[in-house]
């Protein structure tokens, strides 16, 4: 580089530099141990005496100028960062507060759903996790030898009659028996399944059950309720379809699917290439389920639905390992300005 252009090019480059990293690189390039100034000094040594006399002082001046502009820039950058830090400190003082805790993502999702159903006049009920075969299966139209039953899937406290509930419908069978219709009820809860835990399956998961028993309700009411729920959880653009599906406790049965949030229906790994994601089960409460609970199916009708919550939560919070949700490494990021006083 010509000695006369060194300073101008440096100034130009410094003017466009705003980051400390870039500045440090430039400084090294110009006044580092193998920098441009050093190179000129080395070249000077090999020049004839006459030229040394002309270029020597020029180089001296250049060196001083280069160091000066670099120092100026350094100061400017330094005060900028300082200023920024002060700004951020004053913000953090304004915003700082004691630590605020967090809801567990599962509870948070349940609360959001509850909110909607409370607005629609539903009661929230719960029931025992240790259940009897009667309430968990038989009262839901799954007699002992029903093919949908898989004994291997159940965790027993005392086989064959006392078990950990495999579905929140067990709460439904208890509420149906204990309370008189009309009723509108939701019952979120934890259920168990005898399955080895891995990234995508756990022996503990969470269901959101709901049911109504009224003199007259219809599939249209069920679909409308579902749509309201999906819109509350996923926004107005959500697309849901309803297809026929079998569950012993309902007749007719319904499988609600949501258009895949990942591929918007074109097919991807999340939806196993079908464009839709199964969201659970629903249907009109089977007349046998009502009559077993002492409710006259000639006078009352009902609909019921059950959703798995864990997968919704995983999708929403970008959690890839279901075990994270239960006593695993679920981490709660603190608020940004936490504890900064």
């Amino acid at each position: 580089m010509d000695i006369d252009t060194v300073l101008n090019s440096l100034i130009q480059r410094l003017n466009t530099t705003n980051s400390v990293d870039e500045f440090l690189k430039l400084r090294k390039e110009y006044i580092g141990p193998n920098g441009i100034v050093k190179q000129h000094e080395q070249q000077l040594a090999s020049l004839p005496v006459e030229q040394k006399r002309i270029i020597g002082p020029k180089l001296q001046q250049l060196k001083k100028d280069v160091e000066r502009v670099i120092e100026e820039k350094n100061g400017e950058l330094h005060s900028n960062t300082l200023l920024k830090r002060q700004e951020s400190e004053s913000e953090s003082i304004n915003f700082s507060q004691a630590k605020i805790g967090h809801y567990h993502p599962i509870t948070n999702t349940i609360s959001m759903m509850n909110q909607l159903f409370i607005e629609m006049g539903y009661s929230i009920m719960n029931g025992p996790e240790i259940e009897t075969d009667t309430y968990c299966f038989q009262r839901l139209n799954v007699p002992v030898d029903h093919p949908a039953r898989d004994m291997q899937d159940t965790i027993y406290v005392q086989a064959p009659n006392i078990l950990l509930r495999t579905q929140t419908s067990s709460i439904e069978s208890r509420v149906l028996e204990e309370f008189k219709p009309p009723m509108k009820v939701i019952c979120p809860g934890r259920v168990y399944r005898n399955e080895k835990a891995n990234r995508s399956n756990h022996f503990i998961f969470h269901q959101y059950q709901g049911f109504v028993v009224l003199p007259h309700v219809t599939l249209k009411d069920l679909f409308g309720t579902f749509n309201a729920l999906f819109k509350r959880m996923y926004g107005d653009d959500v697309e849901v379809r309803y297809r026929n599906k079998y569950y012993p406790e309902v007749e007719p049965g319904v499988g609600p699917d949501m258009k895949c949030f990942n591929c918007k229906g074109t097919g991807c790994a999340v939806c196993k290439n079908v464009g839709w994601i199964e969201m659970g089960g629903a249907g009109m409460i089977h007349p046998h389920v009502l009559s077993m609970a002492g409710i006259d199916p000639q006078k009352w009708m009902g609909f019921a639905f059950g959703l798995g919550i864990d997968r919704w939560v995983m999708a929403k919070y970008n959690i890839t390992d279901i075990r994270t949700l239960l006593g695993g490494n679920v981490g709660y990021k603190p608020n940004l300005y936490e504890n900064t006083i």
Partner: peptide
Amino acid sequence: YNKIPSDEIPALDVVTNITP
């Protein structure tokens, strides 16, 4: 099932709240 509209929030009867 696709002939059944799903975009109407049902106006179901008001019932007693039994939340414990």
